[in-house]
Simulated scan of single mutants.
Amino acid sequence: MSFVAIQPRLVSINMLNLVSDIFSRYCLMVLLILGTIGLTLNTLIFTRRTFRQNSCVHYFLASTIANYFVVFFILPSRILSDGYDIDPGQYNLPYCRLRFYTYFTAKSLSSWFIVLACFDRKMSSSQSVHSRAFARPIISRWMIAITTLIGLLFYAYVPVFYVIDSSHNCGARAGFYSLFDDSVYLVGYSLAPPLLMLIFGIWTIGNTRRLRRIVPRGRRLSPLNKRDHTLMLMLFLQVTLITITTVPHAVQKLYSTLTLNVPKDDFTKAAENVFIIVVRTVSFINHSCTFYILTLSGKMFRQELYKITRKFMCKLGRQAIRTDHQLRTLTQTVKFTTSNPQLQRKQQLKKRNT
């Protein structure tokens, strides 16, 4: 009877392990491909002349650059370690610390740049001239530089706290350090950015409504233009995506730390492992799929994408015409040479003389 009872449990554990492998190998690989395409197109669009003098777009571009580190460094290392058990961090301490330092700083900076974009929209929609002066490209460049420096310093504890334990796992030191690490990740990546985005978003909506009112002297305050409304919609959808994808992973990390010393059977361990890998995979969606969210939400974004695509296709067409013309010219030259015996004899004499 005990054997009969154990069999279904083993089958369930094997199924859970299979789900873990699918997410670790194939889902992360799909996100890597989508991220490569999306981030490249994001960069091409955000650096176009149309957006070059828009301070909010500068924050989008900075977030895209931070996502490059996530997609091209963190994602491949996760695919190798979780999907194929190839993890240099199990025996190489400098790599272990560099990997997690990059992991925390890149993911957090990506979200904090969107917080700055929300604050930029809040200031640009203000009635105060001094507040609107904040939404300038020169200010955005300084804010990006300062925020990057703060982010690099904020996670400076990682190279100190992270070690390789006796089980060859790379992570924070056991005890207080591990709890501190998970709490910082929860607050600095999953709670504070979405909360600030929500506050600034509500503030922006209030400012926008006040801009539509008529002031006492009969003048109407100039409303936000279409570009500003499009950026606000794009921002709102990205904030929603960040909130949905970041909170579960941070909560899972904190839960794993708090229940580290709790006895668990094989089935519970397999179930928790699936949950860890699923929420971790979901957290990467925020960094890989922003392009597709922006394309769906922003008409102006789609128009710039269409211009880039049309320019690229025209360039390919001109190159194909040029190549075809060169081939025709070469073919006609060969035909003329072969059909002219005197020219052939002259070429043969030249070869002999040389």
Rank of each mutant, 00 (worst) to 15 (best):
L152V: 13
L153T: 09
R132A: 13
C96R: 01
Y91S: 11
Q90G: 15
S125A: 09
L109G: 05
I150T: 07
Y95T: 05
S124C: 04
Y157D: 05
S126Q: 04
F113K: 00
A133W: 07
S108R: 01
R136P: 03
F104G: 00
I144V: 12
F104E: 02
S131G: 01
W112I: 00
S131V: 05
P94W: 06
S125E: 00
A135Y: 04
P159Q: 07
Y101A: 04
F104H: 10
T147H: 01
Q127N: 14
I138Q: 13
Y155L: 07
M143H: 10
P88H: 08
S110W: 03
R132W: 12
D120F: 06
M123K: 11
S110I: 01
A133K: 13
T105F: 02
T102D: 07
S126L: 06
R136H: 14
G151T: 06
I138S: 15
L98T: 06
Y95I: 10
L116Y: 09
R97A: 12
L109N: 05
P88K: 05
I139G: 00
I114R: 00
S131I: 03
I114P: 01
C96K: 01
L149E: 05
S108E: 01
F154Q: 02
A117H: 02
L116T: 01
W112P: 05
T147A: 09
T105M: 02
F154D: 01
A145L: 15
Y157N: 05
V160T: 10
I146M: 11
A106E: 03
P159D: 05
I150C: 10
S124M: 04
C118R: 01
L149H: 09
K122S: 09
L93M: 10
M123V: 07
F104Q: 05
Y101D: 02
P159V: 03
S110V: 02
N92M: 10
I144H: 04
T105S: 06
V158R: 07
A145F: 15
F134A: 04
W112H: 09
F113T: 00
F154K: 03
S110G: 14
G89I: 00
A117R: 02
A133D: 12
K122Y: 15
V158L: 15
R99T: 06
Y91W: 15
S140L: 08
S108C: 14
V129M: 11
F113M: 08
F113V: 00
L98W: 08
L152K: 08
A106T: 09
L93D: 04
L153E: 02
V160P: 07
S111Q: 10
V129Q: 13
F100M: 11
L93E: 07
A145Y: 15
R136S: 14
P137H: 03
Y91I: 08
N92G: 10
C118E: 01
M123E: 13
S126N: 11
M143Y: 12
I146S: 10
S140K: 03
C96G: 02
S108F: 07
T105K: 00
T102C: 14
I139H: 11
S126V: 05
R97P: 12
M123D: 03
V129D: 12
N92F: 15
M143A: 15
Y91R: 11
A133Q: 12
F154M: 07
R99L: 14
S128A: 09
G89D: 04
T148V: 07
L116M: 13
F134C: 05
S131D: 13
P137A: 03
T105D: 00
A135Q: 04
R97Y: 14
